[in-house]
Design a protein around this nucleic acid. Structure first.
Lengths: 157, 157
DNA sequence: ATTATAATGATAATGGTTGTCATTAACAAT
DNA sequence: ATTGTTAATGACAACCATTATCATTATAAT
């Protein structure tokens, strides 16, 4: 019996087992790819990268696995305004690679930035506390994105 | 000749004309609906609401108009994780109804909140300045969303 | 090894959003 | 007001990322 709302602090094997999920080669491979990638990947990106190490994998399985990982909070899913979702390994606000995104609305380029993250996170913590209490909402995650024109697109105009 | 990157300070008739766009009944109707709605609407929501006052409108036109409005910065487009995009009339950070979103990842309910907005916006302004300079990025907009479980979904578990 | 059931892969289906193109409407110039 | 240029529209088809289906296979507890 599975339970997607199982949150814990163990790394994913334990987390998986504890929630009734099974550990498979496909899932190993997908998490391997996500760990190595230091950028957001689409489902298809992942599919292509997983293929060499586990050729039998299907795109459907990639989607299903990502779905589970997102529900477990191990992976973040992003929408950058083009049509496809992007995924990256979740790292808590304290994580070394925690970052936010700067998105060019013209060329869809995405810049990861880590500057100002500390201040942002500090403020967000306060806000989260307030919101949790007021709306009785259990906040598990946040999203901050800035939109605008990147240098190249800005210069063209 | 049209130019989507035309940004100004006039209300939309002027803005439209200034950018080479034409004012049509359909567009009037769509903006009317958006102004009256104090919640985010999907393209289809808008289509249905516009129909009574302008029955000839097509869904395609709704999408096209929203597209223009988003590009002009008059409307914000949101992704709340279900499949359809939501739209709401843009109000600058100083606007009376400026708000951010609290999204339940379980039932997809969306709560608008205005609390803490001032502090958030204050911080974001600083961040924007820093990012603009460092990445030579012209920031026009930002998105903040919190994810978690709403009271109902939280109690069920 | 057996068994219960979760995971998979192939494939079809879904459905929000876009593209196409002939027709109509807006508006500037006359 | 009439005309001419070009943007906007509507009907419909196409797109394509994501999901659902279902028979088969693999995991892991017993």
């Amino acid at each position: 019996m599975k339970n997607r709302d199982c949150r814990g602090h163990l790394w994913w094997h334990g987390r998986f087992r504890g929630c009734g999920y099974r550990i498979t080669l496909g899932r190993e491979a997908i998490l391997e790819v996500l760990s190595r990638a230091n950028q957001h990947l689409s489902a298809e990106d992942i599919y292509i990268k997983v293929h060499p190490m586990y050729p039998n994998i299907g795109l459907t399985t990639v989607y299903r696995t990502l779905d589970v990982l997102v529900d477990l909070g191990l992976v973040f899913k992003f929408d950058f305004g083009d049509k496809r979702a992007r995924y990256e390994l979740a790292e808590g606000p304290k994580g070394a690679h925690h970052h936010h995104h700067l998105i060019c609305t013209n060329c869809k380029r995405v810049i990861d930035y880590t500057d100002f993250i500390d201040e942002e996170v500090e403020l967000l913590n306060q806000t989260e506390k307030g919101l949790s209490k007021k709306y009785n909402f259990m906040i598990t995650n946040h999203l901050i994105q800035f939109y605008g024109l990147c240098d190249k697109c800005n210069n063209k105009k």
